[in-house]
Computed example of a mutant assay.
Amino acid sequence: MQIYNFSKDNGKKIGIFNSNFIMSRIIETNKGAHIGCMYLEENGIIGYHQATIPQLLLILDGEGYVCDEKKEYFKVRSGDSIFWEKNEWHETKTETGLTAIVIESEELNPSLYMPKKHWDVSSVSF
């Protein structure tokens, strides 16, 4: 499991075509990709399972916890993205709710565009 940051602070100001916005690049793929939006309500959970394909989870709103195959939990919030390789065991849960976009594709390399997140605290146990 790798955790990245796609927040506004890591974006680039775009001014071409009289534009005025910040773009945080996330991923590029030459192979097909499945993209979906997940809504976890209070005490929501994406149960512990093995990734059938590389997965990138982008937290848009709210906060929660993700774990790796060691069952070590890490707190994530809006602006964080979590990458799991194919066959990696993982889980996502929230006490207060979160909204996330999931991108699944055989060809994902989030480190091309997003910096890895630096942790202020160690993992959390449940």
Rank of each mutant, 00 (worst) to 15 (best):
M1F: 09
M1G: 12
Q2E: 15
Y4E: 02
Y4W: 02
Y4H: 05
N5C: 12
N5R: 15
N5T: 14
S7H: 05
S7K: 10
S7A: 14
K8W: 05
K8G: 01
D9Q: 15
D9R: 14
N10V: 08
G11L: 09
K12W: 06
K13E: 11
K13P: 01
I14K: 10
I16E: 10
F17P: 00
S19E: 12
N20A: 09
N20I: 08
I22C: 05
I22A: 01
I26E: 02
I26R: 01
E28F: 04
N30W: 06
K31H: 09
A33Y: 03
H34I: 14
H34Y: 12
I35L: 13
I35S: 02
M38E: 08
L40V: 08
L40F: 13
E41S: 13
E41G: 13
I45T: 14
I46S: 13
G47H: 14
Y48V: 05
Y48R: 15
I53H: 03
P54E: 07
L56C: 06
L58G: 01
L60E: 02
D61S: 12
G62E: 07
G64F: 06
G64R: 10
D68H: 06
E69F: 05
Y73K: 07
K75D: 02
K75L: 08
R77Y: 09
S78C: 06
G79H: 08
I82Q: 00
W84E: 04
W84R: 12
W84I: 09
E91C: 12
E91A: 05
T96A: 04
L98F: 15
T99H: 07
A100V: 02
A100Y: 14
A100K: 07
I101K: 01
I103T: 11
I103N: 02
S105D: 01
E107T: 10
L108G: 00
S111M: 04
S111C: 04
Y113M: 12
P115F: 02
K116G: 01
K117I: 07
D120N: 14
D120K: 14
D120Y: 11
V121M: 05
V121E: 09
S122F: 03
S123A: 11
